[in-house]
Structures are given as C-alpha cells and as structure tokens.
C-alpha cells in the first residue's frame, strides 16, 4: 500500500493519477434514429434507420449496438479481437445482458460493469488503471443504452397513452466504445493526442429524491461531490479545465449541479456541458434532455474526442453520472442514490 502511495499514483482520497497514462486510440459509435436527427447526428459512425436494427427484439438490437460499437472502433484502428486485452463495459438492463451477450460474440477477456449511466466513465477509469498498471496494453471501454428496452424495464409499455412529466428525460438509443492503449502499443490509431491522465472514483450520494422522473436532480449531488473531491484532491481549479462534461443530468439536473457547485465555492457555469443537453435539440420535445449510459458514451466518442484530438479542447473532466435505482427499489418508494465517476482526458 505504502509503495503505491509513494509511487504517486494516488492523490487525496478519491483520485488516481496515471504515471504511464493510456492513450485513447480509436472510437466507435452507433446512434438511434432520433439521436441521428439531433445536433450531433453527423458525428456518429452509424445512425440506425429503425431501432430494432433488423433484429426481432430491442434487446437483441441493443446487444448488437454494443458489439458493433466495439467492432467499429477496432476496425478504425485495424485491430483484431486478439489485440484487445480486456473489454470493459455495461448497460442498463437487468444483469447487464446487453454487454454480457455482446461479449459472448466478441470473445475477449471481459469485465462487465454496472454503474447505471456512469458506466462510460467507470470503464475508462478502470481501463486507465489496467493500462497504467501494465496489466493490459489495449482495452475497449464501452457502454450502451436503448430507449425501448429501458422504457419497458423502468417505465410503461410504449403504446400506453399518457404524458411525460416536465423533468423526465429520454433514454438515448446509442452505444459508444473507446479503445485505449498503453505505452507499449505500437499499432495504428486514429487519435494520437488523447490521454487518460487521471480519474476520480465517485461516492454514492443520496439526497433523498424519490421521483424516478427526476433523475437529473437525483444525480446532481453525486456529480457535485465528485467534482469537489477531484478539485480538492488534485489542487486544481475549474480554470484548469476547458470543459467539465457531465453525463446525463439534463437541463434541470444541470441547473441543480451548477447550484450545488456554487455552494461548494466552485463556479462552473460557463465551463460546464451536459451530454444529455447536447444530444437532442429542444424542438425534439424530450423535456429535460437525454439520459442513459449510451448518452455520455456516444457523445464522448462521437464528438468530444474529436474536439480534443483537433486541439479545440485541451483538457476535459469527463464525469458520467448514474442513478442507481431499480424498478423494485422505485416501487418500494426508496430514494434514488446517485454516483458520478470522472476521468481527465487531455491532449499531450
């Protein structure tokens, strides 16, 4: 333990600093039809024309999206499946079946993760550790979500008539995969400059929100907590980042997040963006924006990585947020615990 501390891989209570940082070398994204019509539509590798993608159930479509996002990212970097030392990822369905079943096809060493919508950051964080520790030379970090599978698991049948509440968010149909490689990797790559330099492991925070239609507000405290921990652990300020990106707080959750940060003495307003607010346009009538682990996964891999590669962003704190509820806990009137994991992605 002491040697780890001395080697300088940890700062403060929650933050890991990678001394041999992994580099993001490739990415793959798949997006649903509605996401394709959104502001980021042109950035996705594949936009589905219809969201069953030729499969006979949405669950099968979702696992295909996970698998194809990984394959797309591998193709771009001309990797074979033997080149990936570890596949990390998850989804929102019970027992993370999308990730598990996709991993069955991908035949790679696989660690299934569940962090609800924080999965993309969680997988990058663990991927960063594997690369830094030398336990892997190449990892694939992936997350997927699908509107129609999430609706039937968490909410009502699709054809049931009714209105959404104004704080509701729409689960994004999307998948994103980042492939990251360690210093020993010498193969081809589409990104040359993006490194995972640090990460902050979030704590579960619950301020007692019980409304499953208000997940942004349920997750905002966790995001504020992780950001505060990250800044205090590293001694950095918000100004050290071009952007603090949250996963899927949506418009109302973002408002509460900015508010809570202000309470902590952190002024984030003009450096904050939320993937849930970026993926849909206001005229797409999605109330408070997008959600789901495919939201931050697809926005990061389709859009933000490019911005860093091109130098338009120099250093970002990518913080995906998860609402750790289940249909059972909701029915039993439990409050919604939130979590946020952050990774620092920077250009070097």
């Amino acid at each position: 333990m002491d040697s780890v501390m001395q080697s300088g891989k940890r700062m403060g209570n929650q933050t890991l600093v990678f001394s041999n940082p992994g580099a993001v070398i490739s990415s793959g994204t798949i997006a649903g039809p509605m996401e394709g019509k959104g502001p980021l539509g042109e950035h996705f590798d594949t936009v589905l024309k219809e969201d069953t993608w030729g499969e006979d159930s949405w669950e099968k479509a979702e696992r295909k999206m996970f698998e194809q996002a990984v394959r797309r990212a591998m193709e771009k970097a001309e990797l074979n499946s033997g080149d990936v030392d570890c596949l990390l990822g998850g989804d929102l369905l019970n027992q993370i079946i999308s990730a598990n079943f996709a991993a069955r096809e991908l035949k790679m060493p696989f660690l299934g993760l569940y962090g609800a919508c924080s999965t993309m950051a969680e997988s990058l964080l663990i991927g960063g550790m594997l690369l830094d520790g030398g336990y892997a030379d190449c990892v694939a970090c992936t997350a997927v979500s699908h509107f129609s599978t999430a609706e039937r698991q968490y909410r009502n049948p699709l054809e049931m008539g009714g209105q959404t509440t104004p704080t509701a968010q729409r689960t994004v149909t999307g998948a994103g995969c980042s492939i990251a490689a360690g210093p020993n990797y010498s193969g081809s790559r589409i990104y040359r400059n993006i490194f995972i330099t640090a990460g902050t492991i979030g704590k579960v925070v619950d301020l007692g929100i019980t409304d499953a239609n208000n997940m942004g507000a349920a997750m905002a405290p966790a995001a504020a907590d992780t950001l505060a921990a990250h800044l205090s652990d590293t001694g950095r300020g918000v100004m050290d980042y071009d952007l603090v990106v949250t996963g899927d707080l949506g418009s109302f959750g973002s408002e509460m997040f900015i508010d809570l940060c202000r309470d902590n003495g952190i002024d984030i307003q003009d450096r904050h963006m939320d993937c849930g607010n970026m993926i849909f346009a206001p005229e797409q009538k999605v109330d408070c924006g997008g959600s789901g682990c495919g939201c931050s996964a697809s926005v990061l891999n389709a859009y933000l990585l490019d911005k860093i590669e091109k130098g338009e962003l120099r250093r970002i704190f990518f913080m995906a947020t998860g609402a750790l509820l289940s249909p059972t806990s909701s029915m039993q009137s439990e409050s919604i615990p939130g979590i946020a994991h952050g990774v620092v992605l920077e250009r070097k």
């Binding site: 104004p166 704080t167 301020l207 929100i209 208000n214 507000a217 405290p221 109302f252 509460m256 508010d259």
Partner: peptide
Amino acid sequence: YQQRVNEKM
C-alpha cells in the same frame, strides 16, 4: 436539497 428541487423544478 429537496426543498430547493421542489422550488426550482
């Protein structure tokens, strides 16, 4: 926090 959420929602 809950009070604040209720006010601003």
